[in-house]
Write a protein that binds this DNA or RNA. Structure first.
Lengths: 225, 225, 225, 225
DNA sequence: TATGAATGAGGGTTCATTCAT
DNA sequence: TATGAATGAACCCTCATTCAT
């Protein structure tokens, strides 16, 4: 994995000030998009949120597109760094699935605006061709990885074999992707219990027939891992 | 239920030509939004799609908002008319749930662009306050109705009691709402089998513990109803 | 003075219905202009006030200009019919001046909206050249007539000789023209006493030096005539 | 009185070029409104007059309203600065009244278009409620101040007691407000003699009974002060 | 005679971007 | 490096008018 940052933690070829300025602008963009929505978050609004002018933003990012790209890319980096070690720590299929869901929700909780902004961008931004003008391949890779996990543990017998892993993966992703918007509407939402519920749901939906004769309780969730 | 259309099928107080024109424009708006996305579907683009001018659209609808409102309202009317009799025909909880999911997908299949456009509007349009400037109460009522169904059949014992109906309802809605965008990207998607998969998924996730010792096969789906 | 109406009181070549329709539309235009101002009184707004459509108005009047023209012309006809006999009844210069002022105010009181609308038009409507696109020659003739009156009675010695009749006439007209707008802001204004005050003012300003050694009281106003 | 301009004469927080641009645009707006009337002076026309584009104007003023506001406010500042010292220099009631009228006319003469434009705005601009969308409180304060002056000198006996100061003030204001439009129609108007005439008129209308037995001549005007 | 339908110019405003300093 | 100034296209909408029935 090629790093884009030099040993001192700063992106290559960027001064400290430059890096700080970019971070500040990206933060403002995130807040503006989260609050106003992608369509309403114009450069002027983002500049206002950042306390600067459009000129400054375009000087640092070249174009609005580049700024949005950075918002998206940064979240993917953060997300991957958050998810990867947690998923690797899980041993069983059920545990990995539960981890996937709960860690996703935890990550959302810790990066509310950033995730919300990125979902906004993913759903709303459109290039002329119809697809997204930004790079959500990481996102798609995440969905694909989930499918692979499901498929793999179907093979080992840890998941029941008779569901379509693509459909299951999409249902899981959809449930997760709906959370940021829900969270924006209802900031008091208890993400932890929400995550447990969702994990239970898909645990039951994926476990092999005949397993777990007793009721599923949250206490059992530990043994799944 | 008072009808808003006169016996000849035309909305009250509207001439034949006006009704036809409005329908044509609404159709163009649907296509434009479905193809270009909500943000890019300007009046000029919609007019171009309709083969007319902005002036004509504003003559018939007064404002862009009114046009969008019509797109949304019309789908809700169609959707309700499609769903209601099907749901009423279901007798068991499991049957009703399967019907809800499969009928939704069938409806989506029959109204691809219209549903896609409406989802676009629901996700992207934002008023100053942050909420949607359009009336999606029908949509919310649908989600609430689903929750009520789940809750009711938890009471009768047809669904397991230990899931949160709100979370389950949201997961189901999210899975359904994700379909139009998916369908746009992959027009060849087999909605029927997709619907069965999804119905199976949530059937298993909701059925009481200990029931259905055997594997779930699609052939069984009939007996659920 | 050539009459444009036939013996039965209807304008030549117009049916009864046509005449009534035109009157209704003119009334609506007057109300709309008086309430909204000339600039905001679009054809659509006037049609709304009249309870019809733009098409109807343009059918009867041909153009917006024609309608406005009618509003202006009609007031001038009314105004002349009101003023002429009253002025002719006055014998002295002072009496005629007082009559001019008080009758003007009385006329304004009886035709509030119509006068207000016409003043709006006079002040606001502009043709490309800069002048008014409508015919206010009657208005200007009125101002000129006032000047002639002042001049004439300067000659007879009834008015002091050392004021410029043009300036005096303009001051009087300005004071009168300011009333409709004032009246719109303060509908409770007592026009009668207002008229007496104004008449007193200009009576004093025009009377010969040395006359009227005592205080001017309103009771004296009768003897001026 | 806190100044809004920094020592170098530029408004605080504005660059030199910005200040110059704003002044240029305001001047263009004044000319356009004076020439075309308020209703016809669209942003495009003003831009054309200024030799720029709508974009430039909106960059500097944010909205058409802001520009108009500036036109109005600037005149009020200029007007107050012109009038205040002159009024304060007058000692007698008659002198102050004459000063009020003549200084007003002199100010009009020195700021023809600006005054004309402002009168246009005052008479023509209308907000939804009916009132003016711009701040003419300074104008109203001026009218009220005039009334107070009249009232005060009625108390001292320098003006006759038996006129209504409100009516007198309004008549004076109306006579003054009519001048810009008159001046536009007849640019050769001799404002100085016009002002003397007007001042004579209202001097006679306000002086106590019995005073000034001889004819009023302009030579006397000096002794009034 | 009367009206609904359509038109196209022009309204003010926001937008992302480029330019010059 | 950084910023204010300017640009021009596109936005939605209103307008008076013309057209066709």
């Amino acid at each position: 994995m090629r790093s884009e940052t030099s040993p001192d933690g700063q992106p290559k070829g960027r001064t400290f000030i430059e890096t700080a300025r970019r971070a500040q602008i990206v933060a403002a963009a995130i807040d503006a998009i989260a609050e106003l929505g992608y369509g309403q978050a114009s450069l002027a609004r983002i500049a206002e949120t950042a306390g600067t002018s459009k000129g400054v933003i375009l000087y640092h990012f070249g174009s609005r597109d580049d700024l949005i790209r950075e918002v998206v890319a940064e979240l993917h980096v953060k997300g991957r760094a958050y998810m990867a070690p947690r998923l690797e720590a899980a041993s069983t299929g059920a545990g990995m699935l539960r981890t996937y869901i709960e860690a996703n929700l935890a990550f959302i909780g810790e990066n509310r605006n950033h995730v919300l902004a990125t979902v906004e961008i993913a759903f709303n931004a459109r290039s002329a061709g119809g697809g997204s003008p930004y790079d959500f391949s990481a996102r798609e890779q995440g969905a694909e990885a989930l499918r692979q996990i499901l498929l793999y543990f179907q093979g080992t017998g840890e998941f029941r074999a008779d569901f379509d892993p693509a459909v299951m993966a999409l249902a899981i992703r959809a449930a997760l992707d709906a959370v940021p918007a829900r969270l924006a509407r209802d900031p008091g939402l208890d993400l932890e219990s929400y995550g447990r519920e969702l994990a239970d749901l898909f645990h039951i939906a994926t476990r092999p027939e005949g397993s777990h004769p007793g009721a599923v309780t949250h206490d059992q969730s530990a043994e799944e891992r």
